[in-house]
Design a protein around this nucleic acid. Sequence first.
DNA 1: AGCCAGGCACCGC
DNA 2: GCGGTGCATGGC
Length: 292
Amino acid sequence: MEYIVENNNILFNDYLDFDIEHILECGQCFRFYKKSDKDYLLIAYDKILRVTQGDNKIIFHNTNTNDFDTIWTNYFDLGRDYGDIKKVLSDIDEHLHKAVSEKGGIRILQQDTWETLISFIISQNKNITHIKILIEELSKKYGTYIGEEDNVKYYSFPTIEQLSAASEQDLRDLKVGFRAPYIVDACRKVFNNEVDLVGLTSMEIEEAKNELMKIKGVGPKVADCVLLFGAKRYEVFPTDVWVKRIMEHYYFNKDTKIKAIHEFAVEHYGTLAGFAQQFLFYYARDFKIGKK
DNA sequence: AGCCAGGCACCGC
DNA sequence: GCGGTGCATGGC
């Protein structure tokens, strides 16, 4: 991957399989701000990064080769050939072919495991707009100040130690509602190693899922999201209402149980199930496919 | 206004 | 096991 260093920016020319809008808006992450068309500010790993993209150029602003090589290359999963993945998925069936061709710039970000755990606990029974607000509030209150951009102060996502300082009532005051005890339980079990987040990348997949589901408020869907977005487990298929809708629409044509859909997808898409899910989810949500 | 949100725990059977 | 219901809060 050859990039160009120019002042404090890092540039790519003619980079394929990367669309910053697809990557950030596809629902896998929450801490980003759209400044204008294909111009985003994102917060990850205690850093603020601005990314802009033109026809044949991607610019990572105000960064350096060290951060790029140690953080952003992994974060954007630049070592993986998405051309290959997209080709395999497209050949599976016409539905996936369509989703991949419409949303071809998606890449699965390698996010922090802890942050994805708390974020997806919060996500349950909420719309994406409000999830983003709650995560910002949590960061503002318990995270660390990391800098200012356009007169806005930004804060890192709270560490396990920082968030452990919050009581259930503190969290309720932040309006997380019934999720407050879930967050407290996650803090406690991760802090005292009752739940091993580091081991998630290497455990048998069922074991990894069960490890996460020891936490109150973590069920199959949240566990799959944490594994896919925060632990590089690409064989899972998070099945939520949107995925249920598009799968029913394309493959079942009737009201089908989430469990049955999940089993079908894992079988049908195999080791690339996670990538398939993300293409389908974003495609379905953007075009409101399956929505009554 | 009222329904529903990237689910899950808890309760009956 | 399986299906129904309540859940805090805010967007649409």
